Simulated scan of single mutants.
Amino acid sequence: MSTISMRRTTFAAVGLAVVASLALTGCENGDEESPAQPAASAPGSAPATSGAPTGPSTGAGAAPASAPGTAKSGQVFKIGEAAEIPYDYGDFKGSRIALTVTAIEQGTPADLEGLDLGDKANGKVPYYIRYTVKNIGTTDMSYASVGHVSGLLGDGTAAQSLAVIGRFEKCKGESMPKGFANGQTQSTCAIALAPSAQTKVAGAAYGGNPYNAANKGEAIAWK
């Protein structure tokens, strides 16, 4: 997996890292997510990167060992449909969320201007994967970061991901706010890049625990 990382030194600039998606070989990053820091400690913190998930399938997968209603490994949902999943990272082990991809919006190549991608952006078209996170467990998930959401091209292969350090107004990757308790919902966004205008990002996938190769799982998807 190749990584392109850039940092701007001017006051209003943003840095970014383009994370090339992995081929669908079951090579999944199983590292835990770290909780996002409160705003006061955010400057200078390293961005969370999300590995591209393995390709989802409609075949039956083994259900994660958790509560009834939990999304099965490899399960495919419709856009707008919620997937109930465990969130087992750091201080939030044992948490539970409902993850919903609400829309996949096509941007324009001009959206990438000012990010100093250079010729790395040539021909690329950004897509914005908008999703919501609802706390359906009993754990306070203040400042948690729910990543591992990526794009899927029309043929089912993983799209390239773009992680922006700083604030990108067209697609704000929001962490959970303070006091994010049961019943609360937060909207957030992930960026995927299509290789050309002729290729579209047609779906999205979540490849966090337990839906990754490290846990003998398979990403869940929305199409």
Rank of each mutant, 00 (worst) to 15 (best):
I129F: 08
I97D: 01
Y127A: 00
K170W: 07
Y87M: 13
S175W: 00
Y89I: 13
A67W: 09
T102R: 10
I129Y: 05
G107H: 00
T100K: 12
S161H: 08
T139G: 01
A83Q: 09
K170Q: 04
L153E: 01
V133H: 07
V76A: 05
M176D: 01
I136F: 09
P56Y: 10
V149R: 07
G147S: 12
N135Q: 12
G156F: 03
G107R: 01
S145A: 13
K178T: 02
G94S: 10
T54P: 03
D140L: 15
K120Q: 11
G59D: 05
A98D: 06
I129V: 12
E174A: 14
G90T: 08
G154Q: 12
Q75V: 13
D140Q: 11
P177S: 12
Y87K: 15
S66F: 15
A65Y: 08
A121Q: 02
Y131K: 15
V133M: 03
A181S: 07
Q184H: 08
Y127D: 02
D140Y: 11
R167P: 00
M141I: 10
S150R: 11
A60E: 08
G59L: 15
K93H: 04
G179H: 06
A71C: 14
S66I: 15
D91M: 11
T108N: 04
E81H: 03
A82C: 12
V76T: 14
S57F: 10
A159T: 00
E169K: 10
L152F: 01
D155P: 04
F168R: 00
D119H: 12
D91R: 15
V149M: 13
M176H: 05
T100G: 07
Q160N: 05
S175L: 06
T138C: 02
T185H: 11
G166F: 04
S73F: 08
Y128E: 05
P68Y: 06
D111Q: 11
S150Y: 07
I79D: 01
A163K: 05
Y87F: 15
H148G: 01
D119K: 15
D119C: 03
F180C: 11
G94H: 13
S66W: 15
T157C: 00
A158D: 03
S145H: 05
L117Y: 03
G166P: 09
S175Y: 01
G59H: 10
P109Q: 06
L153W: 01
P86H: 13
S66N: 05
V76M: 06
G137N: 10
R96S: 03
L99D: 00
F180I: 14
H148N: 06
G107W: 08
G156D: 05
